[in-house]
Design a protein around this nucleic acid. Sequence first.
DNA 1: ATAAAGCCTCCGGTAACAGGAGGGTCAACC
DNA 2: GGTTGACCCTCCTGTTACCGGAGGCTTTAT
Lengths: 136, 136
Amino acid sequence: MLTINDASKRTNLPVKTIRYYDEVGLVLATGRTPAGYRLYDDRSCQKLGFVQRARQFNFSIEECRELLSLYEDHGRPSRDVKKITLSKLALLQKQLDDLTTLTLELQTLANQCTGDDRPDCPILNAFSAGPIDAEP
Amino acid sequence: MLTINDASKRTNLPVKTIRYYDEVGLVLATGRTPAGYRLYDDRSCQKLGFVQRARQFNFSIEECRELLSLYEDHGRPSRDVKKITLSKLALLQKQLDDLTTLTLELQTLANQCTGDDRPDCPILNAFSAGPIDAEP
DNA sequence: ATAAAGCCTCCGGTAACAGGAGGGTCAACC
DNA sequence: GGTTGACCCTCCTGTTACCGGAGGCTTTAT
């Protein structure tokens, strides 16, 4: 059995985060010492790692909860997991598109700005006027 | 002089948001009626629009505050604006890269998953094991 | 006169933790 | 046996940029 600090070192998750996951019931501590210290075993460490990776893929805590229960259920059809993954993928794709547009437009503005002592600034002009047309 | 509702219609910003900008001192109401109703003039509406567009470019409230003061200062050098913009651009670029990597990896996993009745699932396997190698 | 719409302030909630206060516990060392 | 220092606990507050709603005036229209 590991203390929360040991679990932290093993998973590279901050102690605070592990405590938080316990608190919200995402990954519960395996047990407690008589003094109330949280204890974790190999299995719970593995779950922590699982959540960590899912979080890195932008899955929310609630989605992690869902994935974790599928992960625990060894008879689950892979269809269920794929469904969640695909909808998350669509969301990521949209974020990606938005961010790309944004970056292009801002890039265009920065290029147009001389960036010298003169007060005239295409960036501020654009912000004060309206939407921006990116250069082709 | 416009009521907050009129300003909202003109700028397409929610009333709640305009009130919030007043509260945090980003775009103050021009004045108040004897009854305490907020009033906005053309100039403050323009500032609201400015903030709206800057926010669409992912500038935080604090950054908007900075841009707005440069916007108000007609003698400012465009260098100052460009500097802020470029650092924001770098941040956007990094977000973009991260998101791209993420999407590719998740795409790879989804492709590998049969998505049928069988319980074997490459997605969960990957999450339980470690980092993912994207397909070339 | 009254009803509807609009305005106000204040309170609570959101996501996913981080930081810190105040206090108990444990192992080692002298 | 006492003490130091590392570690643990819970509870509270703060973060970002608002949204929703309660309770209560004000204005406008009928």
